[in-house]
Design a protein around this nucleic acid. Structure first.
Lengths: 252, 252
DNA sequence: AATTCCTGTTTCACTCATGGGAACAGAACT
DNA sequence: AGTTCTGTTCCCATGAGTGAAACAGGAATT
């Protein structure tokens, strides 16, 4: 997994602070110092520099600055996948009435790129930009199935297989078995592996070399995604959409 | 403007690198090193740590990581203004057919929070998350008009009054005159001060104490935003929308 | 095929900046 | 007035970031 030899520790603490503020909006110097186990003076100085650059704002407690929004949208808009998948995701959501996501992978984690809700979509607590684990959902497994075994092994080694429900895959061998079948089948299922009562289908978006660069998924309540809807109708819709996206990406 | 005494310089260089990559997508170690005038080894080590944390990705050249998207959307969703203004902006765009923006200020700079296009909107190159100068547009001036003169003075001192068109305000006294009139009038105009041929109206969104926390603006081609449309109709629409937003913010 | 000129990588001293401790001030509450 | 938080500032020691140089690998040149 190519560990970094000498990380710049000062930068790491800076981002630890940023990430702490992200999770504890409105935190103050003392609170951050005690929770991160650093001297108040250290935190104070870091906060000052981060504020000056616009990455944090202070208003009786520190919060994330909108500087991140600029960079974040820049990052998103830099991915052709986002642009190509956007309309297709919306279309699938309208057609199926369910929740549809375009996801991608980065650093061995899954990232929600764009989602659309149909008329009867379940309300999940997922949000664009959310970071998750690839082995926990249909889209992520579809991606893993189309990556090299070494790559998958590295990811498992790096993050483990954290559990979310009783049905989350927690065993490495089991995961590889799943991926094998997903590769043969062409798409992945998720039966309550991430959220109880939630089923999903996911299909990979691959590049010219057959490596997955992302995936689309349709998810909904288990009772509605039953029988041929789950095993025939939705997979077919996904494969059609995915195919179009792949063509547009290799373009044109 | 409360300068930071001792900035953490290592963190500053880290963000210099991040910002460089944002503007030069796909840049490499050598390029960054020469342009930022640092040793290659330094850049190399910084890039490594930033990649490991997910803030950059490497794929034959470095790019912004989607980690920023997560933080950026977090920052955006943390602002009540964004949520309250969202629907109103969409509504105004549909009703007027023009481009409507909700903007806010941070660190003395303007930030595009949410925009909506009407049926005949001009295509501007503005994007959500974009950072700009407050004195250059209607929304920004509306905000400045409802901030303390000292605060405005600090901002002018910090960033100057950069020009964009022949009509951009470049003189401090002139700016304060404008703000005076905007304060009396209740809304601001922008006649080709940011983009040639583009007119706009902006109205401030203030808190309980009368301090501006953001603004709405409607912009369109000068020929269409003429006469009473600019001076009567749109200001009235804006003031109505702004008023509702203010009520919801102080809530409720 | 050999050479050149790019990359990116690694190593290693040196120095400077980071980090922590402690002293300080100001607010909020008792 | 006293207590206990908060955030701020100073300063010193040390540990970490920086840069120079040497290195390796690839691409494009000859």
């Amino acid at each position: 997994m190519h560990e970094v030899a000498n990380p710049v520790t000062t930068v790491e603490t800076a981002f630890e602070i940023v990430e702490y503020v992200a999770e504890h909006d409105g935190a103050g110097v003392s609170e951050i110092a005690t929770d991160l186990d650093r001297a108040k003076s250290t935190i104070h100085r870091h906060l000052g520099t981060l504020v000056q650059r616009g990455y944090l704002v202070e208003d009786g407690g520190y919060s994330l600055g909108l500087r991140f929004l600029d960079l974040g949208l820049d990052a998103r808009d830099g991915r052709p996948l986002y642009h190509e998948a956007h309309a297709k995701v919306d279309e699938l959501a309208e057609r199926t009435g369910e929740k549809v996501w375009c996801m991608t992978a980065e650093n061995g984690r899954s990232i929600h790129l764009h989602g659309a809700s149909g008329t009867q979509s379940v309300r999940t607590n997922s949000r664009e930009g959310d970071v998750g684990y690839l082995h926990q959902h249909a889209a992520g497994k579809a991606i893993l199935a189309h990556r090299s075994p070494e790559h998958v092994g590295d990811i498992v080694e790096r993050y483990g297989l954290p559990t979310r429900t009783d049905d989350t895959i927690t065993d490495g061998d089991e995961l590889f078995d799943h991926l094998e079948r997903i590769r043969e089948r062409g798409y992945a299922f998720n039966r309550e592996e991430s959220v109880p009562g939630l089923y999903a289908v996911g299909a990979p978006i691959t590049d010219d070399r057959g490596v997955a660069i992302g995936a689309l998924s349709i998810s909904g309540p288990a009772n509605r995604l039953a029988g041929e809807t789950l095993t025939e109708e939705f997979p077919e819709l996904l494969l059609g959409a995915v195919n179009e996206i792949e063509i547009n990406l290799s373009h044109g």
